[in-house]
Write a protein that binds this DNA or RNA. Sequence first.
DNA 1: ATTATCTATAGATCTATAGATAATGC
DNA 2: ATTATCTATAGATCTATAGATAATGC
Lengths: 189, 189
Amino acid sequence: MAAARARSGERRAEIVRAALEVIAERGYRGASLAAVAERVGLTQQGLLHHFPTKEALLVAVLEEHDQWDTGGGGGRDGWRLDLLEPLVEYNAMRPGIVQTFSALLGESVTEGHPAREFFTRRYTQVRAELAGVLRAEFGDRLPGGLTPEEAAPLVTAVLDGLQYQWLLDPDAVDMPAAFRGFLRLLGAR
Amino acid sequence: MAAARARSGERRAEIVRAALEVIAERGYRGASLAAVAERVGLTQQGLLHHFPTKEALLVAVLEEHDQWDTGGGGGRDGWRLDLLEPLVEYNAMRPGIVQTFSALLGESVTEGHPAREFFTRRYTQVRAELAGVLRAEFGDRLPGGLTPEEAAPLVTAVLDGLQYQWLLDPDAVDMPAAFRGFLRLLGAR
DNA sequence: ATTATCTATAGATCTATAGATAATGC
DNA sequence: ATTATCTATAGATCTATAGATAATGC
């Protein structure tokens, strides 16, 4: 045959990449296995050989992009505040990934959604790590008398909220500039 | 028969209310007409007598709750900054509505989603009105040198972003308190 | 006559299972 | 023997249309 048989790991990676795209376009509930399969030149049943269920495929997508959103800049755990702005800048160049993330986050608040626990855990962790970073940078008090623990959910909220506004209307919202504005509010220079 | 025939307007209102609930639970794409119909004691085909298509029902839901999110507090156009905090407080008491809104916002960034234009327009309008409110309150410069136009998308982002964190983990996030913290950052008392 | 509702049903999908076929690795 | 894929198909759904039936309002 023309194409050599890809090793299983490569095939799985291809499928995860395709799933990421289809989820960006239609969300998880709207994404069909057939659409993902077609994108990698497989039948839907062929895809199910690599991932036994649709949910298993979603889990693989979530694991693959575990460093999403707030983690991309600085490696698994050691975030630094000055790496958040470059991360936002980077995200502004890959609307596809941001759209997948945002669509999944939106869906995840509905009942019994398979990504719900993932996001819940992730936000708990992100808030805790951000609080640590903010304390290291600003000490125990930020402008307005906020503690780092009070500011951390706001940083996360701004990151996510700006993504929605930007995805809906990229020309109307300069996501990195807006985020820099927020950092100035926090007192960073 | 037992129940008197409801006037059409009442029936439609019942259906819209049921649709709101089902969308909160499953999102728009995941919400079936049959599930909505069942909730008001109709068959799926009976429901389609009142709304000719599923999309028409969504439009009715969006129109009914046009004052969603940022509008509830102060009447159609005249927002005031000091009514935002009570609005967040009010939202914290109705997770259902917030969940419907958040699920729809998340879905709306996917391709060809029927609510996309609604949200795009809405955010454009919300940012403009918030900028006006911020200018009236703070003048041309806010902390960090932000202009009202730079701060407006941040206010919106914080409102939306906090909702997701709160829906995912209500015990971990005190939404009104977090929002008050953000207002203190902006320099309001 | 119009309005509200129902039954019947067409026509698409969708996920997942069963089982065949062919290539690869011992 | 195992791995990758395919064909066939079961069993659920889902939206929407067609057409019947019964009640309401002139």
